[in-house]
């Protein structure tokens, strides 16, 4: 088993764990963390599978970098919304 495949399988595991978390958990913060887990899983698969030929493929690296930026932005928005919701409930 190559290291790339190990990464990819770990990625799949993370993705499934994250997906389960987003769907089944109810606490908003936990679901946001679970989403991040999902994202990391996908990134790992992307980098892992692309290492088949031994050499390093720059394209998935670029993709993962972009993906991380997007995930950070999404997480920030989600956290902002949770705070707003929390604040509104406390005011009541």
């Amino acid at each position: 088993m190559t290291s790339g495949l190990v990464f990819a399988l770990a990625g799949v595991l993370l993705f499934v764990l994250g997906l389960g978390g987003v769907v089944m958990l109810s606490h908003a913060l936990r679901r946001i963390l679970a989403f991040n887990l999902m994202g990391s899983g996908a990134f790992l698969v992307l980098v892992g599978l692309a290492q088949r030929d031994g050499g390093v493929d720059p394209v998935p690296q670029a993709m993962v970098l972009t993906g991380i930026v997007v995930a950070v932005a999404a997480t920030a928005l989600a956290l902002a919304l949770v705070r707003r919701l929390h604040g509104a409930h406390r005011d009541d």
Binding site: A8, F15, V22, G39
Partner: peptide, 25 residues
């Protein structure tokens, strides 16, 4: 909005995983 965001993020996550697999193949 929060509900929409979570659905949306999960859905994009699934899409991204699909893209990763395609790139892998």
């Amino acid at each position: 909005a929060l509900r929409y965001l979570l659905v949306s993020l999960t859905a994009s996550g699934a899409y991204l995983m699909g893209v990763a697999l395609i790139y892998g193949v």
